[in-house]
């Protein structure tokens, strides 16, 4: 481990690693509240307009949604292996798994793009000319667009971080023992968890 990995306020590398993980967990607590705010809105409206919400949710594309869930779960697997490989010092495994994670993340966004295009073609954007007659259906789709959009933004940030790490590991400018791999992994898994909850709320509601 190069001595330069130790940064200013820290007296030991172990403590510094601990801080990186802990700091990210605190940030994730913040992120939980961020999504909780919107999901509270969703919950309130779903309680008030249950039938309209279920009818609207049937209009989402469950194939794309399920496919994307599977892609994200798999990307979490490769991310977990990448973080573990980095800690074990396995360079090839780390690089391959980081690349795979990026590939899965991009695949997710591509599928999302197809899905968005289909939604727009079917006039599922809230506003004039909306496809469904019930007014509250527009509220469902307001949350659909907002939540998936914010999630996609998080995915994009995660992709940027992962790509940076892959580049740095490739160029050997960041040692594999750096806490960054694990921290990026934590963030990626969190974004995955958000989707795990969005999937039943947005795609599976009203199917029965």
């Amino acid at each position: 481990m190069p001595a330069t990995a130790l940064r200013k306020p820290w007296r030991s590398l172990r403590r510094q690693r601990e801080a990186a993980g802990f700091g990210l967990w605190v940030f994730l607590g913040s992120e939980v509240m961020f999504f909780a705010c919107a999901l509270t809105g969703y919950a309130v409206y779903r309680t008030l307009w249950n039938a309209d919400f279920l009818a609207a949710a049937r209009e989402t594309n469950v194939v794309y949604g399920t496919l994307n869930t599977a892609i994200l779960l798999t990307s979490s697997l490769t991310m977990a292996v990448a973080a573990e490989g980095a800690r074990a010092g396995l360079r090839r495994l780390t690089l391959a798994c980081l690349a795979a994670t990026i590939a899965f993340g991009l695949a997710f966004l591509v599928v999302k793009g197809f899905e968005y295009r289909e939604d727009i073609e079917r006039h599922l954007l809230p506003g004039p000319g909306f496809a469904l007659p019930a007014p509250a259906a527009q509220i469902f789709f307001a949350f659909y667009w907002l939540l998936t959009g914010v999630h996609a933004l998080h995915m994009t940030i995660g992709l940027g971080v992962t790509a940076t790490l892959l580049w740095q590991a490739w160029r050997r400018s960041r040692p594999l023992r750096s806490p960054a791999f694990e921290v990026a992994g934590l963030y990626w898994h969190f974004v995955d968890i958000v989707w795990i909850f969005l999937y039943p709320l947005l795609y599976l509601a009203g199917r029965a």
Binding site: L73, S76, L77, M79, A80, G185, L186, H189, F190, D192, I193, I196, F197, Y199, P200
Partner: peptide
Amino acid sequence: GIAAAKALLVVLLFM
């Protein structure tokens, strides 16, 4: 419930 189970798996074992 299933979503919570999946999230718990990720949190406990991946994170």
